[in-house]
Structure formats: C-alpha cells, structure tokens
Amino acid sequence: MRPRGRARTPFEVLDLPPDATAEEIQDAYLLLVSTYGENSYATYTVLSDRERKKILQQVEKAYQTLKHLRRTSDASQAEEEEAAAEVEPPALQSPVQPPPRRGRRWAWLSSLLAFLRVERSPDPNGHPLGSEVTRQLAGSYRLSAGQYLKNVRTHKGLSLDAIARSTRISVQHLQALEEDDLEELPSGSYRRMMLSSYARTLGLSSEALLQDLPEQRA
C-alpha cells in the first residue's frame, strides 16, 4: 500500500531490494505466484478475483522484465556463480543447465518440471506450484529432522559428546545430522540408521519416531 504517484519498479512489485540476486528474484516470483495464483485462497475476502488477477499480471510482467535484465547483465557472472554454486536453482535463467550431481538429479528434475508447469500451463485444479517448489519456499518455516533432533537433545540437556558415546556416531556426523547438512553424511540406509540410532538415544520410541520425526529430505 503506497501513496499514488510514480509507477512502481519491477523490484518494488516483487517486494525486493534493487540488488536482489537472480535466485531471490526467482524465489519472490514463485512466492507471489503461489499467493496470487489461480487456486490460492490467501487473498480470500481481501481481493476480488479481478484485483487478484491484476496483481498476478503485474508480478508476471515484473518478473519477465527482471529475468531478461538479469540474463543479459549477469551473462558473464552467471558462469562463475554456476561453477561456485553448491545447488543450482531450478532451471529458470537458461533452459539448459548442467544436471546436478547424482542423488540430486531427481529433485532437480522434478523442480524443473514443476517450474515448467508454472510457466507454461498452470494446473487448473492443483496447487499452482509443484510439491518440490512448495517445499523449497516453505524453507526455514518447515521443521527439519535435524532441527527437531537438536531441539529435543538440548532440551534434555544432553551434549553431542554424550550422544556420540552412546550411538558410536562421530560428533561431526551428528552435527551434520542436526544441521541437515546432507553433503557431510553418508547416503541412503546408512544415514537412516544414524538418524534412528540418534533418535532412540533421545528416548524416542520407534512408534514415536514414526509420528514425530519430520519427513526427511530425499
């Protein structure tokens, strides 16, 4: 809500500072699509359907402008960033991005597909964004398994060393579990074993574990 007068810049439309990165632009755009998109009820009673569509159009236009801007100005920088980036954002800037390392391929692919759905043909019945994008946008508000274990542990007044002694898992690995730092952890069933062993040490029964442990990231 702002006084009438000068037109808003695309950054203002997306509620971003003018130095926002390509990733932030994409994140803001996706958030606004899920807020003002066809099947969202976040605007219920506040906006009419017409007003909602108008905002969506403004958002779309702002995003197209910024996407274009970023693509031309960051052409050289993007290469460096891509090389340095740990996780590539879903292919937005260029349709052909190198697929990520093994293990992430599926996540990458589904987010790419989810994104294409947004840009090409929004599903008239489902959530405007795919589940992978939704999960990504929920971000830090989503309780992770690591956060969960860490909180239960600190509340019980247990140190990582104590957990390490009883589980025979190294402190580094336990720390990685708590920080959800998958890079530092072995993959697959071994990681699951570590998690359940840690959880058991905290006194979480297998039943409680199933109920309590937030679904793990793939």
Partner: peptide
C-alpha cells in the same frame, strides 16, 4: 499450509 504463512505476509 506452511507456505501459506509467507503468502499471508505479502497479502
């Protein structure tokens, strides 16, 4: 549902 919170902030 978790994401909805972020949407409401914008609205």
């Amino acid at each position: 549902d978790i994401l909805l919170g972020r949407c409401l902030v914008d609205v």
